[in-house]
Nucleic acid binder design. Structure first.
Length: 433
DNA sequence: ATTCATGATTACTC
DNA sequence: GAGTAATCATGAAT
């Protein structure tokens, strides 16, 4: 309404568009009038403008009728051209038309991020760099794949929502643009709207919609960031080791109870076998030592279980050794490291690996170790026949290795039960401290 | 919902 | 830097 008022005021008598006007407007004489009745023309224009001004106060039917009347009015082309001139002079139609803003850096950032995360652009493997990095840093490979697929599933959900919304926005934008263009084209019959102006309007609409799109992109980015942070947190989350891994660790622990400090090499080997990291092995042993020490009684059962297991393995080993000694020539007793003892899942398997500290289970030690295994077997058999509780002093796993301060003393006098791989009096070489 | 088990973290010591 | 002890945080069992 302001604009109308302004135009009206302008038309009322102000010098228009540089025309020299006296006492009003100098409109071209419509329909061949010679311009003699100047007052009548003024009256006409005033009427028309009044009609325009009051058109909004009328009912739709009335307005339609008025509109039709105006469209057919003899003064319409003249008024139209004047309005065009005014618009041109006031720069309304041009202003901002050349406002071709450069690409928004933030939008570019968002686009790049969405592209990098695999949300925008062609569908790829899923989590892309994030998942790969997380997979590389995480511990168990099986857990990785679980988390990885989780991450990928969530990411693809985000991707789907993003694309659906984007499509919706684009559709809405197109619909709205078409609608506005039609409206403007329609209106251009009654008011001066240049194609340039329509173009400008379209660009305004597009800008508005792109700002909405930016919000969508921002939200999507946030969602991806949250997902990523959750995913990264998930890596920190505690996840129980597999049963097999725990068994391997426990077997090592109880078979080295006198000195449960695996060497770096042993840790690496354990880590490999358990599909966990070396630091997880360290954590596990740290926790295990302290918890075992704190509550030996509680671990008795577990200790017995693994002792029995070890004993069975020892029995197998002894049997194999006996068989071996029978079949082999006495001149070549158990000389090969590969053919020495088959002790799957026993402490022996750790000892058979290369150990710079001489804790290996090969060569001349073999005989002693067989003896130790036999001892273990005997001991376990005798113990299982009548097991007493730890305080009774006849428990299989008394903290022999621990000193009065609660720490593990040097394993100079390890129980024969403790490790089938240790000969009596053998000193653990994985004493890292 | 509670309790227990357990992997991880942190502060500290040696 | 490795280990200890305390603690946190979460999964699983009840």
């Amino acid at each position: 309404m302001d604009e109308q008022a302004r135009i009206m005021q302008t038309l009322g008598g102000v010098n228009l568009a540089g025309h020299s006007v006296q006492g009003g407007m100098a409109l071209p004489p419509p329909h061949g009038h010679d311009g003699t009745d100047g007052d009548g023309r003024k009256q006409d224009i005033g009427d028309i403008l009044h009609q325009i001004m009051t058109i909004t106060d009328q009912s739709l039917d009335e307005a339609q009728a008025k509109k039709h009347g105006l469209n057919c009015h003899r003064m319409k082309p003249a008024l139209f051209s004047v309005l065009c001139e005014i618009k041109e002079k006031t720069g309304l139609s041009i202003r901002g038309a050349q406002e071709e803003d450069p690409p928004d850096p933030q939008l570019m950032r968002l686009d790049n991020m969405l592209l990098a995360e695999g949300v925008a652009g062609p569908e790829k493997g899923g989590g892309s760099a994030a998942a790969a990095a997380a997979a590389a840093a995480s511990g168990s490979p099986t857990d990785n794949s679980i988390e990885h697929s989780d991450y990928r599933a969530k990411l693809s959900q985000i991707r789907q929502i993003y694309h659906t919304e984007l499509e919706k926005y684009e559709q809405a934008c197109n619909e709205f643009t078409t609608h506005v263009m039609n409206l403007l084209r329609e209106q251009s019959r009654t008011r001066p709207i240049s194609p340039k102006e329509i173009e400008r309007m379209v660009s305004i609409i597009h800008r508005k919609f792109s700002s909405i799109q930016m919000q969508l992109k921002q939200s999507t980015c946030e969602a991806v960031m949250i997902l990523r942070s959750r995913f990264l947190d998930a890596r920190r989350k505690r996840r129980n080791f597999s049963k097999q891994a725990t068994e391997i660790l426990n077997e090592y622990f109880y078979s080295h109870l006198s000195n449960p400090y695996p060497s770096e090499e042993a840790k690496e080997e354990l880590a490999k076998k358990c599909s966990i990291t070396v630091s997880q092995v360290s954590n596990w042993f740290g926790n295990k030592r302290i918890r075992y020490k704190k509550n030996i009684g509680k671990f008795q059962e577990e200790a017995n279980l693994y002792a029995a297991k070890t004993a069975v393995n020892a029995a197998h080993a002894v049997a194999a050794a006996v068989q071996n000694s029978q079949t082999n020539s006495p001149t070549t007793p158990n000389s090969g490291s590969s053919g020495s003892f088959n002790l799957p899942n026993s402490g022996d398997m750790y000892m058979s690996m290369p150990n710079p500290n001489g804790d290996s289970y090969q060569g001349p030690q073999v005989g002693a170790n067989v003896q130790s295994q036999v001892d273990t077997l005997r001991h376990v058999i005798s113990q299982t026949a009548g097991y007493n509780d730890a305080l009774g002093g006849s428990s299989m796993y008394s903290p022999h290795g621990m000193n009065a301060n609660g720490g593990w003393q040097d394993a100079t006098t390890p129980s024969s039960v403790i490790s089938p791989t240790e000969g009596p009096g053998s000193v653990h070489s994985d004493t890292s401290n």
